[in-house]
């Protein structure tokens, strides 16, 4: 159980925060964004950090989940949970079909393909206005209810999104430490050697692509209900880049790195709000500086530094 000690502490903190600070804006409002972003970053990290496959279009799947929920519940009057499942099925099918040809590509080509996918989906949200409401988006989603309890307040959303986030973190930690996770790392390390060890690399990549897209789509559905509103702006190319930044900032290949990265980048706008127009500049600067000077990411670098200090102290005593 030592394996999950870090997770247990993290979960306890997350679940206790609203109890200790029930009316704190940062907990109950910003917290919701943070949880969604953590989930997305963790799902992207499965693909980018573990399997080493860059994606500049992750927001597309988040958006497809959100729009599926909005369209199916409002236009077709479906039950929210059913809509969510149908959205998930749609994303599973789409990401599966696309996964093989896309993930055959590497490096810059893969970056271009995922970027193109993200942009096409975004343009679709903007242009297909009969279905998607165009640039204005769609409002008025029905309230989601769980076991007969309507999720209609920030605090209830806090626990729903927190649970989903914790689940995704737990899944990610479990995968890291398993046969499937090692297969992903092997693909990252050397695809040829992975194949020689009997790993069907195309299949492994495709599965993690679908899994990660599915996690993002479900987050999208929850996001749509929580915001009660979807519009193309939330799922743009820039958001995909922001997700990549979260993963890289924390440290590629580390689940808690993705958590930390998502946390910092979600808090940042709140902090930078005093500078207003500086936000874009600072954001770009962070991305560059981290990648140039701490290519392993904040979390991983800090962890390594701490480990080094501990071992030094061990030698000294």
């Amino acid at each position: 159980m030592k394996r999950l000690a870090g997770f247990a502490i993290f979960a306890a903190v997350c679940l206790l925060l609203p109890v200790i600070f029930p009316d704190n804006y940062y907990v109950t409002v910003v917290g919701l964004t943070i949880f969604l972003n953590i989930t997305l970053a963790v799902s992207l990290n499965l693909l980018m950090g573990y399997a080493g496959q860059i994606s500049l279009g992750h927001a597309a799947f988040f958006g497809l989940g959100a729009y599926s929920s909005a369209i199916l519940t409002i236009k077709y009057g479906l039950n929210p949970w059913l809509a969510m499942i149908l959205g998930a099925v749609l994303v599973i099918c789409l990401s599966y079909v696309l996964s093989r040809p896309i993930l055959r590509l590497k490096g810059h080509y893969l970056a271009m393909a995922t970027l193109g996918l993200g942009i096409i989906v975004h343009i679709f949200f903007v242009q297909a206005d009969e279905l998607t409401g165009g640039p204005d988006g769609i409002t008025g989603l029905p309230t989601l209810s769980l076991f007969g309890v309507a999720i209609d307040s920030d605090i209830k959303w806090y626990f729903v999104l927190c649970s989903y986030m914790l689940l995704s973190v737990l899944f990610s930690l479990n995968i890291a430490d398993s046969r499937a996770g090692r297969a992903l790392s092997a693909v990252h390390g050397s695809e040829i050697a992975a194949q020689m060890m009997g790993i069907d690399t195309a299949k492994v990549k495709s599965h993690i692509f679908v899994f990660s897209a599915l996690m993002a789509a479900l987050a999208g559905s929850l996001f749509a209900h929580q915001q009660d509103f979807v519009s193309p702006e939330s799922f743009s190319f820039f958001f995909s880049i922001e997700l990549v930044t979260m993963v890289v900032l924390g440290g590629l290949g580390s689940t808690f790195g993705a958590v930390l990265g998502a946390f910092i980048l979600s808090i940042l706008p709140e902090v930078l709000i005093v500078f207003e127009d500086f936000e874009v500049l600072v954001f770009g600067l962070i991305l560059m500086v981290i990648m140039i000077f701490l290519p392993e990411g904040l979390f991983v670098s800090l962890k390594n530094r701490a480990a080094m200090m501990l071992s030094k102290r061990g030698i000294g005593s």
Binding site: I54, G107, H108, L252, G284, L285, I286, L287, M288, P295
Partner: peptide, 15 residues
């Protein structure tokens, strides 16, 4: 790595 340079130049573009 390739991924790093992609992200650095994306950062530069945002900057």
């Amino acid at each position: 790595t390739v991924v790093s340079t992609i992200i650095i130049t994306i950062g530069a573009s945002i900057f």
